[in-house]
Simulated scan of single mutants.
Amino acid sequence: MSEGIKDQPGLSEAAAQSRASVLRSRAESYIALSRHDAAIADLTESIALMPGNARAWRLRGESHRVLDRHEAALDDFDEALKLEPDSAYALGSRGQTYAAMDRLEEAMADFEHALTLSPDSLWILEAKADALADLDRLDEALEEHSRIIRLDEDLAYSWVARGDLYQRMHLYQEAIDDYTKALEAEQDHVRALSRRGEALRMADRYEEALADLSRALELDPGNDRALGSRGAVLSELGDNEEALKDLDRAIELDPDYIWAYRVRGEILQELERHEEAVSDFTQALRLEFGD
């Protein structure tokens, strides 16, 4: 009799296997519904019944990861990998957990191993590219993003991800080109519109930036980053009152939005509303440096 069944003495082995299977299946639906605590409860019982099922450990680890319970996630992925050492999914998920904990070299080791098993797994390639960028290995990260695009040129998200990296590298025209490719694949992709608007702002193409950011906000009125960027664009175009409305709303949505406080402070300073400007600059310093 399986070791886990001792916790359910009234169940036969066949009944325990059946119950554990249904619990795992229900947990997967809970995960799809983002009800991760409910999934963890089901998976914990499933593991108690059948501790040798690698999928149950992996799924519970994934729910812990999504909930930022990183140590618990690592424990579960470790157990899953003891049972299935060559699970690309478990390795990739454990790598994502290490990356979230800023243990980037360990994350890279898991991603590299996972990619020997599943070389064309887009989400693992994406996670590896993110880790490379965080390690400031930007050229290597760019190569990974380009590889992802070669595998499937029709995915808007992949173009956006490379565009974000180009923007981080201050290569604004390259970023604009990638966001444009994303929008060819998905016309109303909010992030592509918002990020292209930001890249256009950085390239001093304010009218085009305004059009993109306004469209992004039509689609997603609560997009605080698009509001902040549009506020900066409106200020550059000389409309400080409308700029302040956008920045006020952005800060209302995210009271920790440091850049918005800085931009709003600069506009208030330009309008000679110095007490309010001082308040915004002080808040920006407090949030960024703990002043």
Rank of each mutant, 00 (worst) to 15 (best):
L117E: 06
T44L: 04
T97P: 02
I148E: 01
D78M: 06
R205A: 11
D188R: 07
D224L: 06
L253T: 07
Q173I: 07
R191Q: 14
Y89D: 15
A284S: 13
G231Y: 05
L83R: 10
D136Q: 13
S46I: 05
K245F: 06
I176M: 10
R137L: 11
D220K: 12
L237Y: 02
R19A: 10
R168G: 09
D212F: 06
Y98F: 15
E186R: 10
Y261K: 04
A20E: 01
A38I: 01
L11N: 00
H36S: 09
R264Y: 02
S25R: 14
W259Q: 12
S63C: 12
A39S: 06
L213F: 08
R94M: 04
A226D: 02
R230M: 03
G163S: 03
A209T: 01
D178R: 09
D7F: 15
R215N: 05
L247C: 03
M108F: 10
V190C: 06
D177E: 15
L122Q: 11
A107R: 03
S2K: 11
R225I: 12
D78Y: 09
E276P: 05
H64A: 08
R65S: 14
V263K: 11
I40R: 00
T282H: 10
A131N: 04
A32C: 07
A100C: 09
T97F: 04
L234S: 00
D291Q: 12
L74E: 05
T97I: 03
M50Q: 14
R55P: 00
L81E: 04
D164I: 03
D68M: 09
E140H: 08
A107S: 13
